[in-house]
């Protein structure tokens, strides 16, 4: 029964968090704070991951294509793989592990210590005060982090290709630019927006639903990350069907 009603409760939660008067004057400072926590502070881990995404993708693309097709296909392979798939999905997984867990733990602790109830009886809408800035921050910051990963990963791939894979910078960049399709970039961004929305909503939804004590807060944290991962993979497939079906 719970399994059947869960999607309805999830959608209702999202509606309660978004379809409310936004009260920009009061929400703005909290949105900026959340953008910093979940966006700016995620930069180092995203940059680190991008380096390895770029290195690995270049080495493997070169391994699979060398000697079969011209060398500029390495640039094409790397860039399209990064834009369409790797950057959006990797970034979303990293952000889910980092932000969905911290959000659900924070809100779960607030729930069990009655801080959310305290907001309600003060006449402050807890969905506007707590969820809206978090969901909006994740929806905005995941696409920006994806762009950072795309740029960094392709730059690192260019570097390793030039230094170790016998593909010149000109050849690599020819492959990147000649086969560039705007749909790849914007399709990847559209995915990122959706992933950010899911991560933010899951972090808040499971945190708000925590009841009891520390054990339930821990459980909510796990659920937020697992649900985010599942929804990212599911949405990734659906978006592939929408944007990248030949």
């Amino acid at each position: 029964m719970k399994f059947v009603t869960a999607p309805g409760r999830y959608v209702l939660f999202l509606a309660k968090s978004i379809f409310i008067p936004w009260d920009i004057r009061r929400t703005w400072p909290r949105l900026v704070e959340q953008l910093y926590i979940h966006g700016v502070s995620a930069f180092p881990v995203i940059l680190l991951a991008s380096v390895f995404v770029g290195l690995t993708t270049a080495v493997q693309t070169s391994y699979q294509l060398m000697g079969i097709v011209p060398k500029y296909f390495v640039g094409m392979g790397v860039s399209r793989m990064v834009l369409i798939e790797l950057a959006p999905v990797f970034t979303a997984f990293l952000v889910a592990g980092r932000s969905a867990s911290s959000m659900s733990a924070e809100l779960g602790a607030m729930r069990v210590s009655e801080q959310i109830d305290a907001l309600t009886v003060m006449g402050v809408n807890p969905y506007r005060y707590l969820c809206l800035p978090r969901i909006a921050a994740l929806t905005l910051s995941v696409p920006l982090l994806v762009v950072v990963m795309e740029v960094c990963a392709i730059a690192v791939a260019l570097l390793i290709s030039t230094l170790a894979l016998e593909v010149s910078a000109y050849t690599f960049l020819y492959g990147v630019t000649h086969f560039f399709v705007p749909k790849d970039f914007f399709g990847g961004l559209a995915k990122a927006v959706l992933f950010g929305l899911f991560i933010g909503t899951n972090g808040c939804y499971f945190g708000f639903g925590a009841e009891g004590g520390a054990k339930q807060v821990g459980r909510a944290t796990t659920q937020a990350v697992v649900a985010s991962a599942g929804m990212i993979l599911g949405a990734n497939f659906l978006m592939a069907l929408i944007f990248f079906r030949s």
Binding site: E114, Q115, D117, A118, M122
Partner: peptide, 14 residues
Amino acid sequence: LVQLGYVFQNGALF
């Protein structure tokens, strides 16, 4: 609710 003040058992301070 703006006419209501509520003191929670554990304070519920932020």
